[in-house]
């Protein structure tokens, strides 16, 4: 892996801050040959990640996007120069704000349902006696994932009728897989030796699960939840199709009336919401990661 001097230096500073070397041994001298663990050379990209460049820059980018949207919105001359259809479609207190809260409500509840179902299910499918059904279950779910989201919404529409609940349930089903799969992968990824040691010391299965396996699987599970959350925020844009509301309403109005201003405001709002939550997810992943791992 080649690395220019400048990049190397940047990376080095980042490591100094975030990953201090363990202090040198003022040891009993009994360890001369026990080699200390060595740092692997990391690519520029990895070093940038270690410095949390993304984490620090994202809020700035999101704020700039928000500011841009605000200025653009003001410049439209709503209620004065703008066409009346545009003014009514983009009215904040009766249209955009209620749609935004609806959108978040849909994404929030579907994500909650996903978490509440997928994590316990993932745990169950990695235990005896269900363990052997795990792979079959995941590949079935994988196949289900290939179903278009639109189709899924329609299926649930026919089953449950119009409304917010239908949307939430349909999205929860759609976003179940990433969390389920990551829960299983995360739990399975825990080193067998660690579990063996825990059991060997007399920890019960439950103790090994809650004190060892789940904490160690947290980063992988969180990554799955983050994916599910972003999927849900995106998919909530389709909620309007079955009367679920959300920011999709504004976008569709923009399309229907062929008013790019409306379209732009609606989709930028969705983008801001998605980026903000993705950032929250990234922060959570960083700070909920167990220390020492």
């Amino acid at each position: 892996m080649s690395m220019t001097g400048a990049q190397g230096r940047i990376g080095y500073e980042g490591q100094e801050k975030d990953n201090p070397e363990p202090p040198p041994d003022p040891n009993t001298g009994s360890d001369a040959t026990d080699a200390a663990p060595t740092e692997q050379p990391a690519s520029w990209f990895l070093r940038a990640r270690e410095m949390n460049l993304g984490l620090k820059l994202a809020p700035v980018a999101i704020a700039l996007l928000g500011l841009g949207l605000f200025l653009y919105y003001r410049s439209l001359g709503l209620g004065t120069t703008a066409p009346s259809s545009q003014t009514s479609a983009l009215e904040w207190s009766t249209k955009l704000w209620p749609q935004l809260t609806q959108h978040l409500t849909i994404a929030f509840w579907s994500t909650i349902i996903v978490v509440v179902i997928a994590i316990p299910l993932g745990i169950a499918l990695t235990r005896e006696p269900l363990r052997r059904y795990g792979p079959a279950f995941v590949s079935t779910a994988n196949a289900g994932q290939a179903l278009p989201a639109y189709g899924l919404l329609i299926i649930f529409l026919t089953l449950m009728g119009q409304g917010l609940t239908t949307v939430v349930v349909a999205l929860a089903v759609y976003a179940l897989l990433p969390v389920l799969r990551n829960t299983m992968v995360g739990l399975d990824g825990v080193d067998r030796g660690i579990i063996e040691a825990g059991r060997g010391m007399g920890m019960t299965r439950g103790q090994v699960l809650t004190r060892i396996e789940l904490p160690l699987a947290v980063p992988v599970i969180l990554a799955g939840i983050r994916v599910a959350m972003i999927l849900n925020i995106g998919m909530a844009t389709l909620a309007f199709l079955i009367g679920g509301g959300g920011l999709g309403v504004t976008i569709s109005v923009g399309l229907k009336l062929q008013q790019n201003e409306v379209l732009l405001v609606g989709s930028t709002l969705v983008a801001i919401v998605a980026l903000s939550f993705d950032w929250v997810g990234a922060v959570a992943e960083k700070y909920l990661r167990p220390r020492g791992v």
Binding site: G193, E196, A197, M201, G202, M203, R211, L216, P290
Partner: peptide, 19 residues
């Protein structure tokens, strides 16, 4: 489980809890 708490157990993989 109770039996194992009375018996020390050391394995090649060591299995220290990394977190």
């Amino acid at each position: 489980d109770k039996l194992r708490r009375r018996i020390g157990y050391v394995i090649q993989q060591i299995g220290l809890f990394p977190h």
